[in-house]
Write a protein that binds this DNA or RNA. Structure first.
Ligand SMILES: [Zn+2]
Ligand SMILES: [Zn+2]
Length: 1179
DNA sequence: TGTAACGTGCGT
DNA sequence: ACGCACGTTACA
């Protein structure tokens, strides 16, 4: 007794409220209003008729609610929704679509049934009475007795009423629903109020029908059957039953449960219920044979009713029920229930009640279902099922669990995506303006994940990622970044993806060498995924499986992988959700060891060797290198290098040679001897030369190699990155952000250039080694001295390269392998040459610096980017690498001079290219064109480069300034570099996610820049300035802004010393902040481009030359600057990035006070490119 | 309990 | 698709 009233009351209350709301809304809105009104009226009428009792009101309210619900589906209170959903589920089972519609349809159907029933039965009065009594009962437990009395006469009703209040409740509910439905019907029909009543009766009708049906069958018998069935449970349901189950398992389940319960509690009633249910089932079955549609309708209707009942009964129960239903449907955990149901049904069917009852049964079933739906628990409790309860309970528990597990409930913001990161409502969007009514978060803040559909997420996410990748828009990247889950999926996908990716690019072109080894393919996979970098690197050889695991993803994943990588980075920055973390963790885990190895072991040489190997050798070599690196870390260092290299060379040469790069030992040896170069260097040189010879193949190879190298390096850097990424956030959000940004930027920009650049870088590194060796500076020494720093830098570069490669790959794939590859090849060649030269310089500079050991500052951009990851961990290390970059810049200058614009242009182009893929295809086209021009130029052979380097190196110090493409640029460089470094970092950190994407063209470039900056800082500012050529692009604004503060400070310290330019630098930086592309000098090109929201930083490492020449003494100031950058960039970035984000405008707002800057800016504005690189390009 | 936001459906 | 409105939920 008490149970019944309570539930209804609750429901009624809720329903009332809902009704009110609904009414309001409905009035304003839709047809519903009409229905509601009609319903309300009808309800009222019914209520009046039904009972003068006050309790009736409640009943009325219920019915009204119900009606509302029925109608409602329209507005549908949640409950109704839930019911609707349930209905929908049921309907879905039946094949119907959405719950609301279904519910509506169900209602209609129900109505029809009712009508039919009423017509058939003709015992409307009784039914009405029943309904009334039921209602009264609902309102008043006492009513039950009345009802019972009333019901009793009907017979079936007796069983129902008598059986228990619970049953009565169920019936009541059903009745009410029926009434409601009837009302609705009346409303719809508009004419037949009587029918409505009759309809109300119809709800009872089922009962009557049951009675009729029952008449033949004794309820007891039914009950017995039910019990038997239940107990026997196993009794195989008739095939028809199975069919039913299939069609509507949930309903059946629900029905079953109630049946079970009923039998337990009330003998007759239970039997009735069971009978009903069984009948319904049977009827359905029977009908199904005859009238499948009708059955469906019926089933739906009952379901709806059930839902309604449930809603009325208890909201909570409803929800649960809904969930349970959902779970039931999905999981089929309810199989037990279904079995019982089937049993019942079968028994019922056997009983022969079937078909007729169907209509009535449907209603009855509905009632039963509804009761069950309302709450299996509540129902159980109410009904107090004895034996069955256990099963039921189990079932319920299962259901609950399922529900819980499946709980639809609200999803929560990912807190990772850019929108989620936004904490301020725009106040302009409709959501903001209409928040009260809309209850929606600011559109700008709406989580990307939430915008996605819940279930499909994985695929969609991947797709989205892929799209984003394709789109290359920073936004997409950011968006894709994404949901942790998605990320996880992505990651997995990415892992899978990489393999795919490699196949097209790597495999297609250079596959042979890499592929030769089985692992290579796997390796490729990691390569493919920029994200995986480290993982890839690490995994590449050893952990191919890991990558393989992900194989799930498809080609599209490549993109996704890139995105993922970005995302992962970004995610990491943002504090990825667990899922993301998981994925990341994998990477990290993988990376970590590498990083450890790298760090712990002076693998630096290995890294170089690996780079060389990568460049020169096939994946196998790489693997060997990796193994060496990882396994014999210590060994890997300088001394062992040669051996491993040799081995690698031998190994690698053989396979790779086949492809393109076969390195000739004699040549290598000759190189070694002739030039006093280490074997590694010689190998690298040869590789470079070969690459130059076979540019086309090179790109792929280079890419592959670069990827590998990146992987390797990435493993180093990545490991650091991964760790930092995780930790980075806590350590410094900026760093992490930067990293992510950087990575993203790198990836995108790198897309075209990176692959080439990387190889170039690698080659450069090798060349550098050679150079260094030639210079007599042993890489080992350098490595040892600056092993960490260099490692970091290299790793960073490699990472960048890897990322870039990944991106590039992705872009290539996306765009068109052929074109991209060709271009990339040309670019690669040119870049490689330039990079080689730069590298040589870098190496030299490093050596110089190493002696000095003050490079860390130099890390600027690259270090910033990569280091960001590291930063927290390894700032110092980064600094050292910085030194190296500075050299490259010098080398670049020299190269530029020697080569002409090749290096520069390629870099510039690269950067633009990178940019282009990301943001604007136009830019890409332009850049590509430029690149093409540049590429046309023959790449520098390593030897030639070395020679050049020698000359250059000799003249470097003297010529450095000269080398500096533009003196003014130099100043700018400092500023830009500093600013860029800082800015980049900041931008990346802050903006990267949203808008700006730093596209570090060549890995080296950024590093170089950073390094240069550092080096510059270290070195005499003058030199730095000279060296530094900053191209200011709109993007610079942000960077500059970011840089402004720190750089200014740092710069102030340095530049002031060096020259008046420094102030200009500051100004510039400030000015640049607005929107400008900073282009660094030959040494390092900084290109910061902002297109819309994306900011791309392309940096060519400033050459050490400056640093080499002097700077050591002054490095400290740069350190400060660097430190300030690292530290302060966050600050700077915040505002600028925010500003940028807010106003991605390409405002060329304030040009730097310095004329130079302005000039640069002007020039740059058009092409974005740096004067050095872009100068020609732009020009 | 109140707020913010998700989920849903409908309408356009 | 987008917006609107509602109901509901998650969270504080
Ligand atoms: Zn808003
Ligand atoms: Zn989000």
């Amino acid at each position: 007794m008490p149970h019944t009233p309570k539930a209804p009351k609750k429901s009624s209350c809720a329903s009332k409220k809902q009704n009110v709301r609904r009414v309001k809304a409905s009035t304003t809105r839709r047809q519903k209003v009409n229905f509601l009104k009609a319903n309300g009226e009808i309800k009222k009428a019914i209520d009046k008729k039904q009972a003068a009792k006050a309790a009736q009101r409640t009943a009325v309210s219920k019915p009204s609610k119900r009606t509302v619900k029925n109608v409602l589906i329209v507005k549908g209170s949640r409950h109704t929704r839930g019911s609707v959903n349930q209905n929908g589920l049921l309907s879905k089972r039946n094949g119907k679509g959405k719950s609301p519609h279904n519910s509506v349809s169900c209602l209609r159907e129900v109505k029809s049934y009712r009508r039919v029933v009423t017509k058939k039965k003709g015992g409307l009065k009784i039914r009405e009475q029943n309904t009334d009594t039921k209602r009264s009962e609902v309102h008043d437990p006492n009513g039950d007795g009345q009802q019972k009395g009333a019901v009793i006469p009907t017979g079936e009703e007796q069983s129902v009423n008598i059986s228990s209040e619970q049953i009565a409740e169920d019936h009541r509910e059903t009745v009410v629903h029926n009434t409601d439905k009837a009302e609705e019907e009346t409303v719809k029909a508009g004419t037949e109020t009587v029918q409505n009543e009759s309809c109300s009766a119809p709800s009872e009708q089922p009962n009557s029908a049951f009675v009729e049906q029952r008449d033949p069958l004794d309820p007891v018998n039914n009950v017995d059957f039910a019990y038997n069935n239940n107990t026997s449970g196993p009794t195989t349901p008739s095939p028809s039953q199975s069919d039913k189950y299939v069609s509507g398992q949930i309903e059946e389940v629900q029905l079953i449960v109630p049946h079970i319960n009923f039998p337990d509690n009330s003998f007759q009633t239970t039997p009735e219920n069971s009978m009903e249910a069984g009948e319904t089932v049977a009827s359905q079955v029977c009908r199904s044979s005859n009238e499948s549609p009708a059955l469906e309708n019926i089933a739906n209707a009952p379901q709806k009713e059930k839902n309604e009942f449930e809603s009325t009964a208890d909201v909570d129960t409803k929800d649960e029920i809904d969930d349970a239903e959902m779970s039931m449907k999905k999981e089929g955990a309810l199989s037990l229930l279904s079995l019982s149901m089937t049993i019942y049904n079968s028994t019922l069917c056997e009983m022969g009640r079937g078909p007729q009852a169907t209509a009535s049964l449907s209603s009855s079933t509905e009632s039963t279902q509804s009761s069950f739906d309302s709450d299996s628990e509540s129902v159980l409790e109410r009904r107090e099922s004895g034996n069955p309860p256990l099963q039921i309970e189990d079932i319920q528990l299962r259901l609950l669990q399922v529900q819980e597990s499946r709980d639809k409930k609200k999803r929560i913001q990912c807190d990772v995506c850019t929108p989620c990161l936004r904490k301020i409502n725009c106040g302009e969007c409709r959501s903001c303006q209409n928040r009260k009514m809309g209850h929606q978060i600011c559109k700008l803040r709406k989580c990307v994940e939430l915008t996605k559909k819940p279930h499909v997420i994985c695929t969609r996410e991947v797709e989205s990622e892929a799209n984003s990748v394709n789109g290359t828009s920073s936004e997409q990247m950011e968006e894709t970044c994404v949901t942790p889950e998605e990320e996880a999926h992505y990651i997995s996908l990415t892992h899978n993806v990489p393999p795919d990716v490699p196949t097209p690019l790597q495999h297609g072109l250079l596959p042979a060498p890499l592929e030769k080894e089985p692992g290579t393919t796997d390796v490729l996979l990691p390569h493919n995924s920029s994200l995986t970098f480290r993982n890839g690197a690490e995994h590449m050889k050893p952990n191919t499986e890991r990558h393989v695991d992900p194989t799930e993803p498809h080609a599209t994943f490549h993109k996704s992988t890139f995105k993922k990588s970005h995302e992962s980075e970004s995610v990491q920055e943002q504090t990825f959700p667990l899922k993301k973390i998981k994925l990341e963790e994998q990477w990290v885990d993988i990376d970590d060891p590498h990083s450890k190895h790298l760090e712990t072991n002076g693998c630096y040489e290995d890294a170089l060797s690996t780079l060389a190997a990568v460049v020169c050798f096939s994946s196998t070599d790489r693997k060997s290198l990796e193994e060496r690196l990882y396994g014999p870390h210590s060994c890997l260092k300088t001394e062992p290098k040669e051996e491993p290299y040799q081995c690698q060379l031998n190994q690698g040469e053989e396979p790779p040679q086949n492809d393109n790069i076969a390195l000739s030992l004699p040549s290598v040896q000759s190189l070694v001897q002739y030039r006093n170069i280490s074997v590694d260097q010689a190998i690298a040189i040869e590789a470079l030369t070969q690459l130059a010879a076979s540019p086309q193949t090179l790109p792929f190879e280079t890419e592959n190699q670069s990827q590998d190298a990146q992987r390797v390096t990435s493993t180093y850097s990545a490991s650091s990155n991964h760790i930092p990424l995780r930790e980075a956030k806590p350590v410094s959000d900026v760093f992490s952000n930067k990293v992510s940004v950087i990575s993203s930027s790198l990836q995108q920009p790198s897309v075209i250039c990176n692959p080439l650049n990387r190889p170039a870088n690698l080659t450069q590194s090798q060349n550098q080694h050679c150079m260094s060796t030639s210079r007599k500076l042993s890489l080992k020494d350098l490595l040892v001295a600056s092993s960490e720093c260099e490692k970091l830098s290299y790793t960073a570069e490699t990472r960048r390269n890897g990322q870039a490669l990944c991106k590039a790959e992705g872009t290539f794939k996306k765009y068109k392998h052929g074109e991209a590859t060709q271009i990339s090849r040309k670019r690669d060649e040119e870049e490689v040459a330039a990079q080689l030269v730069q590298l040589a310089f870098m190496i030299e500079s490093r050596q110089m610096q190493l002696s000095e050991n003050s490079p860390p500052k130099g890390m600027p951009t690259q270090t910033m980017k990569y280091n960001h990851n590291y930063l927290g961990q390894h700032l110092k290390k980064q600094r050292k690498p910085k030194m190296t970059p500075s050299k490259p810049r010098m080398s670049k200058k020299k190269a530029a001079e020697i080569e002409g614009n090749h290096c520069r242009i390629p870099l510039a182009k690269r950067t633009p290219n990178r940019k282009t893929p990301l943001k604007a295809t136009i830019q890409k086209a332009i850049s590509q064109q430029k690149m093409r021009f540049q590429h046309k130029r023959s790449p520098f052979l390593p030897q030639a480069q070395i020679d050049l380097k020698k000359y250059i190196t000799e003249a470097h110090h003297e010529n450095r300034q000269l080398l500096c493409y533009s003196n003014s640029l130099k100043k700018e460089h400092f500023e830009t570099i500093l600013g860029s470094g800082k800015q980049n970092g900041f931008h990346f950190k802050y903006e990267h996610g949203a808008q700006s994407h730093c596209l570090p063209p060549p890995n080296g470039l950024f590093h170089n820049h950073t390094n240069d900056h550092l080096g510059a800082s270290q070195w005499p500012r003058h030199e730095c300035e000279q060296q530094m050529i900053s191209q200011v692009s709109k993007t610079y604004d942000v960077l500059n802004h970011g840089a402004k503060q720190q750089p200014q400070q740092a710069m102030a310290s340095e530049p002031c010393k060096d020259s008046p330019q420094s102030p200009g630098m500051y100004h510039r930086a400030n000015g640049f902040n607005d929107h400008q592309h900073l282009h660094t000098n030959q040494n390092g090109f900084y290109k910061v481009e902002k297109s819309g929201g994306v900011t791309v930083l392309s940096t060519s490492s400033v050459h050490l030359e400056n640093g080499d020449v002097v700077n050591t003494g002054e490095q400290t100031p740069t350190k400060h600057t660097i430190n300030s950058f690292l530290e302060s960039p966050m600050r700077f970035l915040d505002t600028p990035t925010k500003n940028l984000l807010n106003t991605p405008s390409k405002q060329t707002t304030e040009l730097p006070s310095c004329d130079c800057v302005e000039h640069v800016i002007e020039k740059e504005e058009g092409p974005y490119y740096t004067h050095l690189g872009s100068g020609p390009n732009v020009a």
